[in-house]
Design a protein around this nucleic acid. Sequence first.
DNA 1: AAGATTCTATGATGCACCTCATAGACGTGC
DNA 2: GCACGTCTATGAGGTGCATCATAGAATCTT
Lengths: 218, 218
Amino acid sequence: MTLEPFFQSISLLKRLSASERQRLAEVSREKRYAKGEAVFRQGDPAEAVCIVKEGRVHLMKFHDEGQASTTCVMTPGEIFCCLPALDRKPYPVDAIAAVDSIIVRIPTTSFHELLQKNPAFLEASLCLFCERLRQVENQSCMVYDSVERRLAQVLLTLSEKFGPTIPLTKHELAEMANTTVETTIRILSHLKKQGAIKSSRGSTTIVKPDMLRDLASS
Amino acid sequence: MTLEPFFQSISLLKRLSASERQRLAEVSREKRYAKGEAVFRQGDPAEAVCIVKEGRVHLMKFHDEGQASTTCVMTPGEIFCCLPALDRKPYPVDAIAAVDSIIVRIPTTSFHELLQKNPAFLEASLCLFCERLRQVENQSCMVYDSVERRLAQVLLTLSEKFGPTIPLTKHELAEMANTTVETTIRILSHLKKQGAIKSSRGSTTIVKPDMLRDLASS
DNA sequence: AAGATTCTATGATGCACCTCATAGACGTGC
DNA sequence: GCACGTCTATGAGGTGCATCATAGAATCTT
């Protein structure tokens, strides 16, 4: 069971020739992570570029006193931490399996070689990279908005990935909005009363996206 | 008065051959900006990569109700907004001259051509991007911190650029720490009483960096 | 089935910070 | 010189949100 078919389904890796992809599949490894387990930690040397095959991985920062904030949620098919593959420096964040997950690990060295050899692949990687930078720059400006706005923003962003029903706990939403569970629940309760969302254990459903958009931008 | 000698002093442009640099100098233009004037605005099409020749430029985001936050301070010799030159998309932030400034504008198209032609130049540019991404990712983790910590962090970061005496007003410091002038002044007064800094109109001097480091990381 | 654990929910309290108001110090233009 | 704008400074008051406490509901464990 080679990884080649899986690699074919990843848009970034489509830029590779069949033989390049085949070779990459040979040196890459699949690995299981239990819920809560770290795929890598901030500061670890960058050994692998990762792709989510199954499950969900959160990129996060841990502060003192155990507070955590999630900067990005990676779902199946998504590739993460190309940055260390580019500059050969350590991972800038923690990557934690949010549920039991299967991750494909591509050795950084192999990835880096391909960047050097294949200009089309470099170009595509750069695009991904630029997107990420824009994403992060955008996030960093919303960080000082009110919690209500941040939450609306978070829900809208997640709905691009998951559709209207977002399969995250209130605690996970809180970590994305950089607030506490209690505050998150209070605000979501309020939004629920207004009919903007529905809420159940482990998931939140957007009913009126326009209402959230108003909140996020007003 | 060609721009070539100036370009020689910019480390990124040292990667170019003399003739490439000469050609770049011919198509680039110097432009003056008065204090408060915009070099470009968020969303503008990316016409030029910019280098500060004299003065100081702040990269910032404006929120509703006129609140502004400064994400980055660019000083002479620094090059900014290579990102749009890479992905050809609009500027992600506003660039405002914080004092009367002279900016050298390199046409995006010329810059982009060089990226394609000269691998060493591409490599160096990538390094700059990677650094920027890491910088931004780091900033975004300041979110959970108290204003005091954010301010300590801001002062330390700025002192890497300016040395111990930071020539910014309290208002500008406030914009960097994402807080108000009043709170900034209150906290700086406190730090002054403790002997960690000195403060005068339009500038703040770090006296005991270790004290700030303790604050920023404790 | 009973107990443990996680998730959701809501109230009470406190505080860090924003907002508004006032004022003196300093520089700038006329 | 005086008027004006900018910068610094400090007080009073209000509030958004964290923290702490409690508890019920859903799910997992054995």
